[in-house]
């Protein structure tokens, strides 16, 4: 069974088809990039996969559960237990330290555990910044705190919506390096990006256009494993 499966998913706002008959499958441990112009429905799709929104039509199977049919409360629980979120604008709580921001995710998941939270910060190379407030950290460091927060509860899938959109090249590299590590550890990654360089490193890149999946590019250099079913080869 695939970890994630979208079957003929639509998201319709009035006349606008933000997602128009999207079907895709993501296997456990896969690293998928999503590209597309602004307004093509990338965030809409991430919100649906991230259990923050429901499709107008279609099935979204996460671990075999159709999240399109779950209650709001269950969606919160699924999100809490299985999904790690990373945003373009970081979204750290600005009066909590880096460490406390990581612990906040533990707090809503189960129990805050300072030692574990500190280990997560260590993994993103920020152990020495644990007591700093977000305002005392650079953009790259803030995004690394967000990565630590996303991975603290061992999610099955990490969803990153333009995680490097606000970062300079150097920090972009650091974050991509962190994704590599997570991928090596077996975490499933779905990363939305405008940046071809960031997209390239994934195993697979999906291109959205006007709410439709228009292209699927497989990175042959990644592992050499190809699964290919499209009519529009790259």
């Amino acid at each position: 069974m695939s970890l994630l499966e979208l079957k003929n998913v639509y998201k319709i706002y009035g006349e606008l088809h933000a997602l128009d008959d999207v079907s895709l499958t993501v296997e456990k441990g896969e690293w998928v990039s999503i590209m597309g112009p602004s307004g093509s429905g990338k965030s809409t799709m991430m919100n649906i996969i991230g259990c923050m929104d429901k499709p107008t039509k279609g099935e979204v199977l996460l671990d075999g559960v159709d999240i399109a049919k779950e209650s709001k409360k269950n969606l919160t629980n699924i999100r809490r237990d299985k999904i790690g979120l990373i945003f373009q604008q970081f979204h750290l709580v600005n009066y909590l330290t880096a460490l406390e921001n990581v612990m906040l995710a533990q707090y809503y998941h189960s129990m805050p555990d300072e030692k574990e939270a500190l280990e997560a910060l260590e993994r993103v190379g920020l152990a020495d910044r644990a007591k700093h407030l977000p305002s005392q950290l650079s953009g790259g460091e803030q995004q690394r705190v967000c990565v630590a927060r996303a991975l603290i509860n061992y999610p099955e899938i990490i969803l990153a919506d333009e995680p490097t959109g606000n970062l300079d090249e150097k920090n972009e590299e650091i974050v991509v390096e962190l994704f590599h590590k997570l991928h090596d550890e077996g975490t499933t990654l779905i990363v939305v990006t405008h940046d071809p360089e960031v997209a390239e490193v994934a195993q697979r890149t999906l291109v959205l256009r006007d709410g439709k999946l228009s292209k699927e590019i497989v990175n042959e250099h990644f592992t050499g494993k190809i699964r290919f079913d499209d009519q529009n080869p790259f």
Partner: peptide, 16 residues
């Protein structure tokens, strides 16, 4: 609202 949205996103229920 952003902070509250974030808390909900990382798993906070309405109650908490």
């Amino acid at each position: 609202s952003q902070e509250i949205g974030l808390m909900k996103a990382i798993g906070a229920h309405n109650g908490s």
